[in-house]
Design a protein around this nucleic acid. Structure first.
Lengths: 168, 168
DNA sequence: ACAGCAATTGAGACAGAGTCTCAGTCTGCT
DNA sequence: AGCAGACTGAGACTCTGTCTCAATTGCTGT
């Protein structure tokens, strides 16, 4: 609980610094995000808050998410779907994702070896990196044991397409 | 030129195998893609073809792109924007991307060291990888020399947001 | 050449995520 | 109290992508 208050204070600090205000709506949203969700989607927040009878419009959610991203407390990521996902940023929390194309589950990992190698590559290309985004798509252990065959690399994207149409 | 014909033949092979037909529209699209574009967006193709007075509908473009992805000749990637990008797949062409958040330019690279390390990580997590997607966002050499300051890691996403609004 | 038939096409409706506008509200300040 | 600027919700709007459906194309066998 006090963790959440700390996050709210942190956000308030950012807002004040920008001459902005910490409103009830913004507070509710930060509370919702930092209480339970690790990865989430904008729509999901809208739904969860409506469930709790907290009134907040879609526009405000998007506006506040933008502020949270600007403040560095939240990150916007792609997880292989056709819309954004967001995730909380906590200290030293940088990580990448393994995304199961069968069940959709997400495994996080961090590897300083990978990070270091990426820095080397950037140096060689005279590129100044600021952020990166790595998803590895495949089949998780549970799904493989249930008999999912690993698909050939060229065909994963087909699955992605199929999953997209399944969502309807 | 003959390279393009080879690609068309390749696509035709895939289509026949699936009991599908190589139509005029599909041929035009493959020609457009393999003639000039390396990374491209669906809308861009629509525009370019209209410019050349080649009539082809949006639906057909998306349908054909789906087939090209299924055939393994084209790959669908995220480059840090809110819609898909596509890229041609040529033999052994797997690579990742450095994306400049200032000018939007894309540098490709391939590093077998990174690839190997990723395989190790997957093994450790009992994850069967099939495909991955890595973008490193930052500032390219040209932009840095023009005086662009490298932004602090936490702020890149803000730039992404700003670029999105610029598109209007 | 022609009938039959499945694949294909374009137009336009539709869907979902995200953005923008605008009028009304809130808040802090003098 | 009055002002100014930040904030909000409702809903219109945009954009990418998908779907439907009637009309068309192009094989295939005769």
């Amino acid at each position: 609980m006090q963790t959440i208050d700390r996050e709210i204070t942190r956000f308030q600090g950012f807002l004040e610094q920008q001459g902005l205000k910490l409103t009830t709506e913004r507070k509710s949203l930060v509370r919702e995000i930092f209480a339970t969700h690790y990865h989430f989607e904008a729509d999901e927040l809208l739904f969860k808050l409506k469930e709790k009878s907290i009134k907040i419009s879609r526009a405000t959610i998007y506006r506040t998410l933008e502020l949270l991203v600007k403040s560095g407390m939240v990150r916007r990521v792609h997880l292989g779907e056709d819309h954004y996902h967001y995730e909380r940023v906590t200290k030293n929390s940088h990580h990448d994702h393994l995304v199961c194309t069968t069940c959709g589950s997400v495994i996080e990992f961090h590897d300083s070896f990978l990070e270091a190698r990426q820095r080397e590559i950037c140096e060689r290309k005279k590129f100044t990196p600021t952020f990166h985004n790595l998803q590895i798509l495949g089949i998780c252990d549970a799904c493989r044991q249930k008999g999912q065959l690993p698909d050939s690399p060229d065909r994963v994207q087909m699955i992605q397409l199929d999953r997209n149409s399944l969502r309807k």
